[in-house]
């Protein structure tokens, strides 16, 4: 795995080859994903314990949540994940404008997700449901808001990538940033898949 060539010094000083830079960025992002797994994992552990301890509270809490909104949001995120995956393939094949379009689709999905979440939250507050209501809703708000934070960060990352892409920074020989940004976005999707199951479905 060690570098075999020292000829291509990047202006940053030390990236040995574009291949190494690419695989390093990806490995870095995967490590970060491992971190995120354990970050949300803490919440999953809390969920598991209190779900087992207070099953009724969780059944009642779930009844307050809108399955329709939850399912819609799940599909929205799956579609966004799909479109950014398509985007990566597109830039790998040199379709720069297609990538821009697909990122816009992804960002729109993200925004739509956020709007839905906003309506969900305000409906809860309207019904007098707050994080302090009970442990289920504390978990609901903690999990979904932390996830929402990731959605926003992901959107920011993809937005920056889109700008750079429009400036023509990416090509079939340089698509590290779109791929790594997409990785992060998929993570957001995967976490939601579990949150959806845990919060909206399980009863």
């Amino acid at each position: 795995m060690a570098a075999t060539s020292v000829e291509h010094l990047h202006s940053d000083g030390h990236f040995v080859t574009p291949q190494d830079k690419y695989s390093s960025m990806k490995l870095g992002m995967w490590l970060f994903i491992a971190t995120e797994i354990l970050l949300f994992g803490g919440l999953f552990a809390v969920y598991a314990i209190y779900r087992a301890k207070f099953p009724e509270m969780f059944f009642n809490g779930r009844d307050e949540l809108s399955l329709l909104l939850g399912t819609t949001n799940t599909v929205i995120l799956i579609v966004s994940s799909f479109s950014i995956a398509m985007g990566v393939t597109a830039i790998q094949r040199g379709k720069k404008n297609l990538l821009t379009f697909l990122i816009i689709v992804t960002l729109l999905c993200g925004a739509l997700f956020g709007v839905n979440k906003y309506f969900e939250y305000t409906a809860k507050f309207h019904h007098g449901i707050f994080p302090s209501t009970d442990i289920f809703f504390a978990l609901y708000f903690m999990m979904t808001s932390l996830h929402m934070l990731h959605v926003i960060v992901g959107m920011a990352i993809l937005f920056i990538i889109m700008i750079f892409n429009m400036k023509g920074k990416y090509s079939p020989s340089n698509y590290t940033a779109p791929e790594v940004g997409a990785l992060y976005w998929h993570l957001v999707d995967v976490i939601w898949i579990y949150l959806f199951g845990l919060l909206y479905l399980v009863a």
Binding site: Q19, Y22, A85, M86, T89, S173, T176
Partner: peptide, 11 residues
């Protein structure tokens, strides 16, 4: 397979 060492997943 791609020159960067990445893989292209078809549409």
């Amino acid at each position: 397979t791609h020159e960067l060492g990445g893989h292209i997943v078809p549409y």
